[in-house]
């Protein structure tokens, strides 16, 4: 089946939508103080950006480049989805169970996921625990930054 749209045209449409969204939100911006009668106000610059985005998007639709070599194949996109999926889980983990529990688990899973050949589970597990403790100590003791403790423990 012949492709209906080129990649540039789809992205051009997204850029236009971003510009339209920006214009649509502009009326909700309430200027805090009237600075000067000549002042363009807080809406002016975002309006210029929005118009610029719409023009660029339109140009991309009208004058698209050829698609060329695919950036990633289907299998590679699945890998990207897995990678970001794990990171979403990690942020969820940070929120609910905190740094000390979610980090070694996700780190272990990440090491296994990124490895092109199977890794030794014991080494990966040990590495995950040691690095977690290292980051924890570096942040809490040296930089005096409290890392997320998790909703369940606070």
């Amino acid at each position: 089946m012949k492709k209906r749209f080129k990649r540039d045209q789809l992205f051009g449409l997204c850029i236009i939508l971003l510009g339209v969204f920006c214009l649509a939100v502009l009326p909700t911006i309430k200027p805090v103080i009237a600075v000067d009668p000549n002042d363009a106000g807080p809406k002016f610059f975002p309006k210029l950006i929005a118009i610029g985005l719409i023009i660029c998007g339109a140009c991309m639709i009208i004058m698209p480049d050829e698609d060329g070599v695919p950036y990633l194949n289907k299998e590679q996109w699945i890998n990207i989805a897995k990678y970001f999926g794990l990171l979403i889980l990690y942020i969820g983990g940070l929120y609910f169970v905190g740094f000390l529990i979610s980090t070694p688990i996700c780190l272990f899973l990440m090491i296994n996921m990124l490895a092109e050949v199977p890794v030794k589970k014991v080494i990966a597990g040990l590495y995950s625990i040691v690095l977690t403790l290292f980051i924890y100590l570096a942040f809490t003791k040296i930089l005096v930054i409290i890392l997320p403790r998790g909703l369940l423990f606070t």
Binding site: Y90, L94, M110, I111, A115, E116, I135, F139
Partner: peptide
């Protein structure tokens, strides 16, 4: 896989 994994988690913190 060790290098990248370490970078990711240090990034988040």
């Amino acid at each position: 896989h060790y290098l990248y994994s370490s970078i990711i988690f240090i990034c988040f913190m």
